[in-house]
Design a protein around this nucleic acid. Sequence first.
RNA 1: GGGGGCAUGGCGAAAUCGGUAGACGCAGCGGACUUAAAAUCCGCAGGCCGCAAGGCUGUGGGGGUUCAAGUCCCCCUGCCCCUACCA
Length: 885
Amino acid sequence: MWHHPRTGSRPDVSEASRYQPQAIESRWQQAWEEAGLNATPEAEGADTFYALSMFPYPSGNLHMGHVRNYVITDVVARVQRMRGKQVLHPMGWDAFGLPAENAAIERGVDPGAWTDRNIASMREQLKQLGLSIDWDREVATCHSDYYRWTQWLFLQFLDAGLAYQKDATVNWDPVDQTVLANEQVDSEGRSWRSGALVEKRKLRQWFLKITAYADQLLDDLPKLEGWPERVRTMQANWIGRSTGAELTFDVVDAEGAATGERITVFTTRPDTIYGASYVVLAPEHPLVGTLTAESEGIHVEAFCDLVSRQSEQERTAEDKPKRGVPIGAQVRNPANGELIPLWIADYVLAEYGTGAVMGVPAHDQRDFLFARQYELPVKQVIIPEGSDEHAFEGGAWTEAGVLIHSGPFDGMASTEAKAAITAAAEDQGWGKGRVQFRLRDWLISRQRYWGCPIPVIHCDSCGVVPVPNDQLPVQLPRDVAFSAKGGSPLAQLESWVQVDCPCCGKPARRETDTMDTFMCSSWYFLRYSDPKNTELPFTPKAVNRWLPVNQYVGGIEHAILHLLYSRFFTKVLRDRGLLGFDEPFSRLLTQGMVQGITYKNPKTGKYIAPGDVADPTDPRDPITGDVLDTFYEKMSKSKYNGVDPAVVIDNYGADTARMFILFKAPPEKDLEWDDADVEGQFRFLQRIWRLVDGALHRGLCLAGAPVAIDTANLTPAEKELRRAVHTAITEISDDLDGEYQFNTAVSELMKLSNAMGDHLESSGEAVATEALRTLLILLAPFAPHLAEELWLKLGGRSEADPLAGGSVHRQSWPMADATALVRDTIPLVIQIKGKVRGNLEVPADADKATLQKLALESDVAAKWLEGKAPSRVIVVPGKLVNLVP
RNA sequence: GGGGGCAUGGCGAAAUCGGUAGACGCAGCGGACUUAAAAUCCGCAGGCCGCAAGGCUGUGGGGGUUCAAGUCCCCCUGCCCCUACCA
């Protein structure tokens, strides 16, 4: 991968003046840690800023996506500190989960020890990046001093009536041998973790009643102005609120007499009820058995059997024709009294709404297709405004319109008829308005060992009994037997399961399900505010002081899962009086992927490692000689396109890696890893090193108070340099406010460095030291080690200084001097009818009339206007004059 | 089908309010230094025509508004992401 390793191959020109990141980075990391530079300040009342990255799963290996995430957050945290904010910038571990348990099954290692080893190794890798993290606040969700409070919070939900058990058809992952929440199954019906096709099973499981907060979770989305629009849209779609009505159809016998059974359908279009020509039930609908006529029994049974054998994916594939069978029963349309047949069909889902729909073929595309297939009547009851009734050839009319064939509602606008018909149904007792959500309750049970035990006890006499607070945590037992056969190891450990009921004292049994790990990650950002509290998960004072998180940074893959659950937790805990805010994350940045260069043989479909490609300008398969496809894709082992952060740090240092990642692309866009660009970034840091080296040889020094600048007597070079310095301050400050634009901020550092290359030597001490001081301070958040090292070399602090005070990272963010930006003359653009035709150097403070006069007198005007007076002149002071002939 | 986003040199990208398109960097080319190479430094560089001065053209395509459009409006095309029989 690394064709040109820097280390060792460079000639030893001058040992003292070479930039060797390997020599300085670990030294500073250690010095900062000893000096407590990154400790969270605790002064009362001061301005706070909470910068947070999504915490990682401790797989043991840091990858580039992590690096990008944490570097972005680190720059934000460092800049806020330099701006005088008290900053909380913590890190922790999302440490429960299946990889640890699988390691236990495959290699017999203890999941806890395995996880702790991984944490230790990842922590070391993270520290090599020079992140300004307060490691004193580290949390790991698998440690009992943390999960004790996850359990405590679960009991809060239980107490609030928001945690409950029910029998439900749930998603079963046959590979991971556990159930999954709806959010954790993708659109193809596969597990988010294992990728296995999930199966449906009926099991008794624990749920959290997130649906009770569906309205709030939806209605508060517009408040999240600091969130990307698309994340808010995804959450809104996921919650999926539909406003409509439940309408009840009486089942009637062959003579038209009510049998007493009723079918309730959910519809968003009660205005179309007069067009209902049949009613369809899901094959799993509980009334299918009782309502099916004997004559249809065989067909119905066969059909239900067929449907149940189909996977969710097969059943919901849109290109499949909709299939169904009549069940030999009929219902009465409550609006017009018509008798219409009852069907079952595969396109009706048992889990949504009431599991039954009314078929209105004229105004619903699915019903239309179904009706055409089975020759069911299509009855139009809504016509487009201003049009006549006409036949529907192509499809259903699903837009708004005017009602026809709808009894007393004829002529009414369909938008009004929704409410009118719902009201009539309520009056007459055959329906009521209803809001339906797509969002289901959150299934949190997992039949696995390495998770947080659900702290309840099942007693034959007392029912479900919460484990009393003084008996928390319910510790995960360590002496369990793992096997690949599945089933929870906890359920097989009788010594752990058997317990006395805390209520009545009789023998009882522990709950053996553990919690979904998303439970653990739904509140870790709260714990960082008070990570060592042994009495509570956090005090209201601590949590309200630091939260909501000012800037949250993480991947888009959590747009629904983690971010929705965390919002739910926050709202529940607010209602329990545990915290005083509605939303946990004020601003959210979803960083783009890190992609690696990928080679693929289009003939064989095989991926080729970049190391096996001899000539990147003409990539060929080393075996077959075929020309390879070259593209960028998310780094992954199977595509051989990954770049190991450790290798980059070894070769170039963390500062180069940080700078490259920030410079190469805007943070929310995908980033194409490119070795040549990494080289370029290293060269830039080298140039800064040499720049400072030159200044040292000249005897420049930053010790003591800055030398006063005599602004009235600056040479042209000094004026240029000062303008560059203060432009950089202005631009970089802007880039770090509002929308983060680290890429252009780094560009500005480069421009400043270029200007210093041109003018530093010819500038006097006062201006030169101002430039050096500013460059290092502006550089500090991006390349913290290099900035600190050069700050030391230039005497910005002495060796004797207590580090915390003298560090470049403790300097205030500089203020731009507006007078340094002022120019005497500016180039004025001369346009003729909007086209640029030339430039004119004019006094910067010239007024409009002067500019117009100068422009009209210019050679450009003479050439293009040919002596004629322009019909119109537009003057934009400071920019241009446009002459329109 | 629904929703969201994107489209700018060979490449990554930049361009607060409509006001010099391509900053900054990568790759490339030319030069200096060197016995030579690397490194470093200086310079060139959207495309077309031209010796040059200069001109024409150019932000996916087409139209529009405007003195002036990458930016605003309408239509179209292509790509990416999410979601999907949700009644």
